[in-house]
Amino acid sequence: MRFGILLTSVHDATTDPRQQVREHEELVRTSEELGFDLMVCGQHFLGSELRYFQPVPWLTHMGGVAPSMRTATGIVLLSMVNPVEIAEQMATLDVLTDGRAVFGVGLGYSPHEFAAFGVEKGSKVKRFEESLALVRRLWSGEVVDFEGEFFSVSGAQPSVRPLQQGGIPVWIGGQAAGAVKRAARLGDAWYTPPFPTHTELRGLRELFLTTRAEAGLPLDGDFPVRRELLIAPSRAAGLEAALERYRARYEVYKKWGLSGENTPVEDGAELRADIEDRFILGTAAECVDQLGQLGEDIGMTHFVYKPHWPGLSHRDAMAQLEEFGSQVLPELAS
């Protein structure tokens, strides 16, 4: 098992943006020292509650801070952005990180983002699939003639291409059955978000593998997984710590319109059970056991860890990262 660090946003515009730069620099520098293999950065537009800097320039800079780590977009909203532009941006990232880029992509879900780009939600799947096909053609090195419903290219042979032979690996995110099947058919891996329960995750993994097998595609590729994880003196203490962080983050997801995310946010038995169904919680040893068992069950190749939460101080997040990196990561990496 290998390990990634998620460079997520916990600030809005009231925080000096240079603070966010410094915090993420410290995060990736420490992660590299602890043995993390990967840094992951997502994409949102027009967010007022949380400030998302755009992933390709952000990862380009952070890749220079921790040059041994791979860089992954997790995820680019491919149903909204222009495929020609993102193909060349990702190729540039791959060159600048010496062939260590991963292209994580997904549909997106926020109505205000689709509206800003003039994209009707009903067209997002077609736009996504067409865009991905064009991106891969533009990375091929061959002359590209492409006539799609949304994008067209004639006689193009871009000089801006990835360093990795055959193109950049494509990880497709999503939590619904349709998204998992799409990842199996069109991607090199399914990049799972943290929203499915542990049981749901196992079922969706089986769906991914079945779909790959039916299409005659390899079954031994990467499987990067995001789970929320909190180290605490006990599982009960971890649950209490998770309650506050959970509400702060998932209220934003709900406000942004994440489809299918009907999780409770009011304290009570239902919320606590929901957290336990999705989180890895407890002492470092308990987290090793839980994460190790889940990894064996589903064939996880990468665990993507998120130490930052809204309302949690950077110092406390770094303490969690160092405890994870010194007590959990070595046990599972070996």
Rank of each mutant, 00 (worst) to 15 (best):
L132D: 09
A133C: 00
R136E: 02
R137F: 12
R137S: 11
L138P: 03
W139H: 07
G141P: 02
E142S: 12
D145F: 11
F146Y: 13
F150V: 01
S154Y: 13
G155P: 13
S159I: 14
V160S: 05
R161Y: 04
Q165H: 02
G166C: 10
G167S: 09
I168G: 07
P169H: 10
P169K: 13
V170H: 00
W171A: 02
W171C: 05
I172V: 14
I172T: 09
G173W: 08
G174W: 01
Q175T: 09
A177L: 13
A179N: 09
A179E: 09
A179F: 08
V180N: 04
V180C: 00
A183P: 01
A183Y: 06
A184D: 01
R185M: 10
L186D: 05
L186Y: 11
A189L: 00
W190R: 06
Y191K: 10
Y191S: 12
T192M: 15
P193T: 13
F195G: 01
E200K: 12
L201M: 12
R202Q: 14
E206T: 14
T211G: 10
E214W: 11
E214R: 15
A215Y: 00
G216V: 09
L217T: 10
D220Y: 03
P224H: 03
P224M: 06
V225S: 10
R226F: 15
R226E: 14
E228A: 14
L230D: 03
S234I: 09
A236I: 00
A236M: 05
G238M: 03
G238A: 03
L239V: 07
A241K: 15
A241W: 13
